[in-house]
Computed example of a mutant assay.
Amino acid sequence: MKSFKLVHQLLNLVEEFEDENDGKELCLTDFSGFLINHLAQSNSVTASDVRFGKNEDDSQQLAFQIDNSIGRLFIYMSRYAKSYIKKTLDGTALQSPEDFTCLAILLTHDSLSKSDLINRNIQEKTSGTEVIRRLLQAGLVSQFDDENDKRSKRVSITEQGKQLLYRVFDDMNDVGKMVAGNLSFSEKLNLQYLLQKLDNFHYKLHEDKAILEKDDIRFHAKML
């Protein structure tokens, strides 16, 4: 029985729950509340990862601490999404997911300064500049002087860029469905709410340039 360990853990928890309630007859709703509270008091959760082997139990315990698990799963999901997007963009003038998101951001603005566009696309200056260079070379965006800042350049999407983007949108809908996977509609709503909450938190740090080095991460982590 593959789930024997889980059943054993549940039986132990049920026994602990009964002891707390002096033998009172209990229901699933009560036990659910107890279980959530039990997990909330621990920084780690019992989980599994098909990528991990059986060695270094202490390291695996560290990896499965709740915050580490969330971070690891975000990395996995990012890689899945990028893989799907790159396959979808194959055969177009867009070479990366960043090319697509950069063009999509420009679609909703008359124009943006290069630095503002790079910032909104959540990129480093070097990689963001390279994305804009590719889009300019492909004729998908145009560049012109900023009237208010002669040192700055602004970019806007071209008609060719709009046409390409609208062709790609249909395929990107399929990517969105793949990324959301087998979640129910209510699970998708809950996930969207949680991801938006996280994005609001991280985008504020990004806009404020609050994370410039490792010590900044440690400082903000201690504030949470």
Results as ranks from 00 to 15, higher is better:
residue 109 H to R: 04
residue 207 E to K: 13
residue 83 S to D: 11
residue 196 Q to C: 11
residue 160 Q to V: 04
residue 184 S to L: 15
residue 58 D to V: 04
residue 143 Q to S: 13
residue 56 E to V: 02
residue 69 S to A: 08
residue 73 L to G: 04
residue 124 E to A: 03
residue 172 M to K: 01
residue 167 R to T: 12
residue 9 Q to H: 12
residue 89 L to Y: 04
residue 73 L to F: 04
residue 111 S to K: 07
residue 3 S to Q: 12
residue 9 Q to I: 13
residue 17 F to V: 04
residue 127 S to A: 10
residue 77 M to F: 05
residue 197 K to M: 12
residue 173 N to I: 15
residue 135 L to A: 03
residue 32 S to C: 11
residue 33 G to T: 01
residue 46 T to W: 12
residue 204 K to Y: 11
residue 39 L to K: 04
residue 195 L to P: 03
residue 23 G to W: 09
residue 168 V to D: 10
residue 28 L to V: 15
residue 53 G to A: 05
residue 184 S to I: 10
residue 95 Q to P: 00
residue 4 F to L: 10
residue 7 V to W: 09
residue 20 E to F: 06
residue 185 F to M: 13
residue 4 F to R: 13
residue 157 I to Q: 07
residue 76 Y to V: 08
residue 155 V to E: 05
residue 206 H to Q: 10
residue 179 V to D: 12
residue 31 F to K: 01
residue 18 E to A: 08
residue 201 F to R: 13
residue 202 H to S: 15
residue 113 S to M: 01
residue 66 I to Q: 13
residue 116 D to N: 06
residue 109 H to F: 09
residue 36 I to T: 09
residue 181 G to M: 08
residue 174 D to I: 14
residue 44 S to F: 06
residue 36 I to R: 06
residue 173 N to D: 13
residue 170 D to K: 09
residue 157 I to K: 02
residue 52 F to H: 03
residue 116 D to F: 00
residue 124 E to V: 03
residue 21 N to K: 10
residue 163 Q to P: 00
residue 203 Y to R: 14
residue 140 L to R: 06
residue 205 L to C: 13
residue 46 T to P: 04
residue 205 L to Y: 11
residue 79 R to Q: 13
residue 52 F to K: 09
residue 34 F to E: 07
residue 7 V to N: 09
residue 172 M to H: 05
residue 32 S to W: 02
residue 106 L to I: 02
residue 22 D to I: 05
residue 53 G to V: 05
residue 18 E to M: 07
residue 104 A to E: 11
residue 73 L to N: 13
residue 69 S to R: 12
residue 211 I to L: 15
residue 128 G to W: 01
residue 27 C to A: 08
residue 19 D to C: 06
residue 33 G to H: 10
residue 92 T to V: 04
residue 13 L to E: 14
residue 111 S to G: 00
residue 104 A to H: 05
residue 26 L to H: 06
residue 179 V to L: 11
residue 72 R to S: 13
residue 15 E to N: 07
residue 51 R to E: 14
residue 172 M to P: 08
residue 44 S to P: 01
residue 105 I to S: 00
residue 212 L to R: 12
residue 24 K to L: 14
residue 97 P to I: 01
residue 2 K to E: 06
residue 10 L to Q: 06
residue 53 G to Q: 03
residue 40 A to D: 14
residue 172 M to R: 01
residue 98 E to P: 00
residue 157 I to E: 07
residue 19 D to E: 15
residue 45 V to E: 15
residue 66 I to K: 15
residue 88 T to N: 05
residue 210 A to W: 01
